[in-house]
Design a protein around this nucleic acid. Sequence first.
RNA 1: CGGGGCGUAGCGCAGCUUGGUAGCGCGCUUGAUUUGGGAUCAAGAAGUCGCAGGUUCAAAUCCUGUCGCCCCGACCA
Length: 567
Amino acid sequence: MKFSELFCPTLREVPSEAETISHQLLLRAGYIRKAGAGIYSYLPLAHRVLRKIEAIVREEMDRSGGQEVLMPIIQPRELWEQTGRWDVYGEEMFRLIDRHQRYFALGPTHEEIITSLVDGDVHSYRDLPLLLYQIQNKYRDEIRPRFGLMRGREFIMKDLYSFDMDEEGLDVSYRKMYAAYNRIFQRLKLHYRVVEADSGAIGGNESHEFMVLADTGEDEIVFCEAGDFAANVDKAACVFSDDGPHEDRQALQKIHTPEMRTIRDLVEFTGQPEQRQVKTLMYYADGQLVAAILRGDRDLNEIKFKNLLGCQELHMADDASVRAAVGAGFGSLGPVGLDVKVYADLEIAGMRNFTCGANEDDYHYTNVNPERDFVPEEYVDIRNAVAGDPCPSCGKPLLTARGIEVGHIFKLGVKYSQAMNATVLDQHGQAVPMVMGCYGIGISRTMAAAIEQNHDDNGIVWPLPIAPFQVIIVPVNAKKEDQMETALSLYVEMQERGLEVLLDDRDERAGVKFKDADLIGIPVRITVGPKALQDNQVEVKKRWENEVFNVAIAQVTDTVVEIIRQR
RNA sequence: CGGGGCGUAGCGCAGCUUGGUAGCGCGCUUGAUUUGGGAUCAAGAAGUCGCAGGUUCAAAUCCUGUCGCCCCGACCA
């Protein structure tokens, strides 16, 4: 490809709408343009990157026994009503109405349609396992699209769905996919980590997320260096370690604490650290008022709390209704004498002589002790894990990192097959619901995540397997015939060797061409300039290194092939 | 949905308080000089001031409505 013919409008200035690095660079380097909030056109360079990611994903899916299909994006309402998700999915689903006033969904995901597809034509256990996948646009009317391709309303997704006869079959399919995903992200040359995940609203019991590690990631993960434990903080178990003070219990004392509303206030006022305070949070769980108590320096994990309670809806109570029920405001709550169910974090059990609200404005208790002064409903794991917590499997201190969720695999079980009555006959002629799994990779998000992880001040630094071109040839001065001739002949030679080459034949100043090459992120740059040319040489520069070295023109193609082979 | 902000040339912005007929930088076109990290000079093209009403002799500017976009929060296969 010649740069002069490439549709690649680069921008010198940072578009003001872009906040994250990947968004800025994708816009500046001429990869994407916005059509509307969370909706983007992919320009030629982006399209090439997407196709490379897809190709790797396809190969690994096929190798694992997957078969590719294409399914409708416009999906009839009736299918979604069968699983109840027409209502459950809520505002996040794009809906449309045809001329006959029939309703449709723009597919946010494809469980319904594929289950109905498979149900229609698969009737025997002999037809299983069946692994079908698709790479298509999906649609979600996100509350707030942001970060460019990271959270769009239209995005490209690979989803594979597995159908098995029983749980054992599902285990096999799940393990296949787990392995395939690892191969995919290794081949993409991304630094990633697999973590245990909450399976969320989609249902099912086992779930892993594939996280591309980047400081700008939206998710926080905790992991153990010693072992293989790694989990999303949403999910990461906290274990009780009895390293409490083991003090003697002092006499309960009520103290006047005027205007003390926050843990920080109390730390100052009482001189006791956060670790000796207890905070009380009030929630409505399906309309029922409940309390969660935690050590002063901990954060409640609402997902854990919700899963524990098994409720449909969980939200923080407002000050007015708390006041009505308890007789005191947020800053003065505590478990002692509290007339609602109290769920205590595991850590509370080990605490002695702590401070908490007295359920009376401007008063707190000190020297509070669990069991003596109050008895919680349960001691449960409801806090967010933090760096330094003991690893649940080996006890070593956990580390944290930020990541971008690019892959997520779930065991769905029979949630959808049961709802849609998708059964097969087993060996005994019994109709059993197929056991399903679902395995997604955000293709367009992976492109953005790769940039979040691989960039510098000058632009994108693509991992080689997904770079839009492998090599860019830059003649310093397009008007100098010797430079252009050398560049052209190298261009032809490299193409014949199977390299993906971009020739910057534009009549631009060298600086412009260098800047663009860096911005776009092509891994290898060949500079044809007057200095080296005198010695029949050209310069080679790797995008991820600063050094430039000269190579004889006759050898340069071999050199590039070797660089790419090693990378 | 709650809070904040913005829509003026392709991009980034000024002008709006105090109405008087639109400007700057980058980009684009042409020419000249340049040519190893986003050149210089000269000439030029380009704007329904988001849209619709209203007030006024006169509206980018004031008023009302509306649409779109961005940020924070809640939410998130």
